[in-house]
Design a protein around this nucleic acid. Structure first.
Lengths: 209, 209, 209, 209
DNA sequence: GATGAATGAGTATTCATTCAT
DNA sequence: AATGAATGAATACTCATTCAT
């Protein structure tokens, strides 16, 4: 289920200006997947989009601006897709497992997204904040429900985020691997105070196959 | 216990050629701490070392080579310092706790080292391998002793390494914090199958104060 | 007595094409006053006029063409306004004093015009010629009347023009100053052979207050 | 008596770094003469000097810095050459005539210098200040000697400077013309209160042929 | 070996101009 | 006519690397 050029597709009915803008953002996402955020050059982005280099500056002030927006859109779209499946889920454990599983699956399946997500977590603090707040909300719910025995601070969020990041990075490199995704969920639950057995069981209960 | 210019000092008796080489490596470590691996320029390194920029190429083929060697030396030296305190420790749990604590403490206290270590883990796969093998050895010991209930593969090592990295990065930014170091050790033990209580107890037993 | 948008106003009854053209010229004059001729961009001109940048090329071949025409119109309009007050003046001295005074006053009061005038004198030889010919006519009259003891050639005109330019430039920068205007007139008369006293008297006689 | 590459010649004994620096400054002066200050590009300067474009940045931070320095050196060197001939001159009139004559002659004969001087007077306020202070000193002397009947302020200096500028500009364009130089001196003296006859006599007394 | 000036490929950015709508 | 998105040549500036001294 490749979603190449997602944003460009979203722009079907829109005016040309917006379509080009989305094409540039799409291109940016793809270039980041190929070379990483640091090495992505403006000319890579415009070349990849089949546009003249000057066109970039009709739409964005500089590289930072498009990185920011590209990451934002990826984050928002991922959050939307994940949230869709979670509206009715009340259990914090289930939410954490499902959200983590979905996030990894989307990031890896749509490998361009994973690269952007990882780049944003490392280099774009505001986006990082946006992403972590979803995580925090579900963890907080577990605390409120009395089932997560944790100190829910920045440091803890960073720990959990790093586990998810490792999982995405590994799977992008070595290929989709549901077992690693499951192990990541288990690790997170263990950090939340679950025993190994309980964690495994909770994850198994909410994993597709 | 500053270790500024460690390698240069090691070179006291050596011929001039070697001393210059070590001075460049020292300088590299310090520059990485200031600007990060990506942004460290050759001229930063030579300027910082008080040498002419052309001198660099009498000793290293390119930037990559010196990064590699600088990271290697930091890793080796850290390993040596940590190992010194661990020769007589048999218990895998103790080894993991002490090694993790020492590694974090050295990386943060000697903050130039932490930056290099993090850079190497991200950008220099061979060094990364060297570092992880120490980790693997101690974890393997725990498996052999029957106290770690884990699947000791690359992925697991990556998870543990990411927890250590997060801890170092956070403490470099916000300052030395023994509590975060202890929490990191606990988290690692939990990933190894320890309950929260047991993890906490094991860490407390081996933490200075 | 602001004369903002003078040319646009002139276009009231004209067809739309001409009104757009005049709006662009007005805008050009204003932009030149803000940023100078060199730094005035096409997009500044169209933005300032509230038009699309492409519209520019429906009316002018290039930047030079509009600069030329804008300067031309400013020069012609200034000449018209000055001439209105001079039709009945026969004395060459009076004509020079009144014309200079009026030219400076208009250029400074309507500061957009001064900037264009100065730009044109420096960068647009044909306009420069147009402007200088008015000056030449009045000076020639003085020669014919036997009261100006000068060699009326290009070089002399350049000298006089440079004195007027200095006056306008200074007053645009530091504010309207009738004393400087008077001193400029006196200087011109001195170059024409008047003694200091005679020059001062002649100027005083024809200066409003 | 062409003085092409003056600064480069000055650098004969100097270290290579300084020689290149002077070569760039010389080149800048020559490029300014060819295209004007506004249009002089870094690549023009390096090409003209037979150097790589990157070399420029080993010596100057940006275009402004080299313009400043080139103008400064031209101004200083001109002042030195003029001053050499004026040390023993006490009379303010003679000083003004000789200095003006020399300045114009050097600027025109060494036409690259004139272009730089004019550029500096227009675009580089600090250099402009340096240049005008020489002028001011001699005029002040005339005031002190009771022979110049002027109000010696910025505006007056601007008037005098503009007459000199006009003369240089004209002679660069149409060729060396001692008569124009003499007329310029006369005009300045007239602005200082001299009658036409007295001005002409004073100038004639101090003009070579 | 050390020096440091010179190099030039690489990258970001601007802006006059074109052209399909 | 007007629009404004797209173009790409022009230009400034960076920095790893070379090489003569």
């Amino acid at each position: 289920m490749s979603q190449q050029a997602l944003f460009r597709d979203q722009g079907k009915g829109l005016p040309k200006r917006d379509r080009t803008r989305l094409a540039l953002i799409d291109s940016t996402v793809e270039v980041i997947a190929l070379k990483g955020m640091d090495l992505a050059k403006i000319s890579d982005i415009t070349d990849h989009a089949g546009l003249a280099n000057g066109t970039f500056y009709n739409h964005f002030a500089d590289k930072d601006e498009i990185l920011q927006e590209a990451a934002q859109r990826v984050a928002v779209e991922m959050a939307r897709q994940i949230d869709e499946q979670m509206r009715s889920i009340e259990s914090a454990v289930t939410r954490v497992v499902v959200a983590t599983t979905r996030a990894i699956r989307i990031s890896v399946g749509e490998s361009t997204w994973g690269a952007v997500l990882i780049g944003a977590l490392q280099h774009l603090p505001p986006i990082r904040g946006d992403i972590l707040q979803f995580l925090r909300a579900d963890l907080q719910r577990g605390v409120d429900q009395g089932i997560f025995d944790i100190e829910l601070d920045e440091f803890f969020l960073d720990q959990v985020a790093s586990l998810i990041t490792v999982s995405i990075r590994t799977q992008i490199e070595t290929g989709d691997d549901p077992v690693k995704t499951a192990r990541t969920c288990e690790s997170i639950l263990r950090l939340c105070g679950f025993s190994r057995a309980k964690a495994r069981k909770a994850v198994a209960a909410h994993t597709p196959e």
